[in-house]
Amino acid sequence: MAGRRLRARGPSRVRRVHPHSMRWFHLVNLAQTALILAAVFGLLRAGSPGLIVVAVCLVVGLHFLPLARIFDVPGYWWTGALLILVAAAGATAYGLDTSNGTVRAVVGLPAAVALWSTALDVSRRG
């Protein structure tokens, strides 16, 4: 393969990043943190610690939706949607009275795959 040149793949389109993107990023992450803390303490108080992983997955999924717009990364829409669906699957498993370990498995692995896939995609695209 002598003479063949490899080109780095650049972004296929120009991203339109909001001028105050970092301010919005910090606000979204502050809201995410507040919602997760409220969910954890609320679910512990309600005696439903098995739903914590579901709530965290849901909040993290929801936080990707504004970030998709703020940073003009269409893949974040998919990440958010997938995490919301995974949270729904976890809530369904919890509602079927499965063990907390099963709920964590239903949520944990698919959520990890979605997040790692997003990280790889973003790092590949730059």
Rank of each mutant, 00 (worst) to 15 (best):
P74N: 01
G42S: 08
S12Y: 03
L85T: 04
W78T: 12
W24P: 02
R124F: 12
P49K: 07
L83E: 06
A39R: 13
S117P: 04
P110Q: 04
L120I: 06
R124P: 10
V59E: 05
V14N: 06
L58D: 06
T33A: 14
T118F: 15
G108V: 11
P74R: 06
S21R: 15
V86A: 02
H63T: 00
H26R: 10
A91W: 12
A81C: 07
R7F: 13
G61V: 01
L67W: 03
H63S: 01
V28D: 11
W78M: 06
L96N: 02
V56A: 03
V122N: 14
T98N: 00
L85I: 09
D72M: 00
R69G: 01
L58W: 14
R124E: 14
V86P: 12
G42Y: 06
R45K: 07
T118H: 13
F71Q: 00
L96W: 09
A119F: 15
P11D: 11
F64C: 04
R5Q: 13
W77L: 14
M1H: 11
V56D: 03
P66L: 02
M1C: 05
G47P: 13
I36D: 03
C57F: 02
D97A: 07
T98R: 05
R125K: 14
F41M: 04
R4N: 05
P49I: 04
H20N: 09
G10H: 15
R16Y: 07
N100S: 08
T102D: 08
A89N: 09
M1V: 08
G80V: 01
T102S: 10
A91F: 09
F64Y: 10
G42I: 03
V53A: 08
G61H: 09
A8K: 14
R5V: 04
V107Q: 05
T98V: 05
M22N: 08
R104I: 00
V17D: 09
G47I: 00
A39E: 05
V107H: 12
S48C: 08
T33G: 09
L35M: 14
A112E: 06
R104T: 02
I84Y: 14
W116Q: 11
